[in-house]
Amino acid sequence: MSAEFHGLVAEFADDHDLLIAAREARRFGYTKMEAYSPFPVHGIDDALGVPPSRLGWFVLAIGLTGTLAAILLQWWVGAINYPLIIGGKPLFSMEFAIPVTFELTVLFASFAAVVGMFALNGLPRFYHPVFNYSSYAGATDNRFLLVIEAGDPVFEPAEGEELMKTLGAVKTELVEA
């Protein structure tokens, strides 16, 4: 398939139809597919063969960085850089350091979750070929799109269109790259 097309868009009226179509298309042999839906469709990841998100590991790493940063900050500030005895309390101890350590862990981890999510999704990105689909607006309203991308090794437009029609697509369209 030439690269002038992004792929074949098949539009479905219900999330259930999308799920079945994705499963069948995968069984048919398509591997490069993407689904677009106005809300997360339960089970679509398995149907498309999308691996689970690994965002959690990134958040854990950055969160622990926050923990360490908070402890180092409170220790260095209180016990090294400007030691000052207040109320006879030790210059540094873990007990009083817990609240700030906890808060900074949460702060760092939350930033990691948000920034990481957008980065993994390649956002912000204001242009994408799927927006060329003539009724893309449905995908954020009440329509469910299954896209067989042009790069798929077994993809043939006519064949794909026929398969999607038999699976209940209400509309199919080849979309420009």
């Binding site: 839906s37 990841d45 498309l48 999308v50 998100s53 958040v59 949460v106 999510m117 956002l123």
Partner: peptide
């Protein structure tokens, strides 16, 4: 931000939402 609602988007999105919920819960108590 160019959100497309693709399955790959939702996958990371739902994970991020779950993590934020998990972080906000002890946060609000704290």
């Amino acid at each position: 931000l160019g959100w497309r609602g693709s399955a790959r988007h939702w996958r990371h999105y739902e994970m991020a939402y779950l993590i934020l919920a998990g972080l906000s819960t002890p946060l609000v108590l704290s």
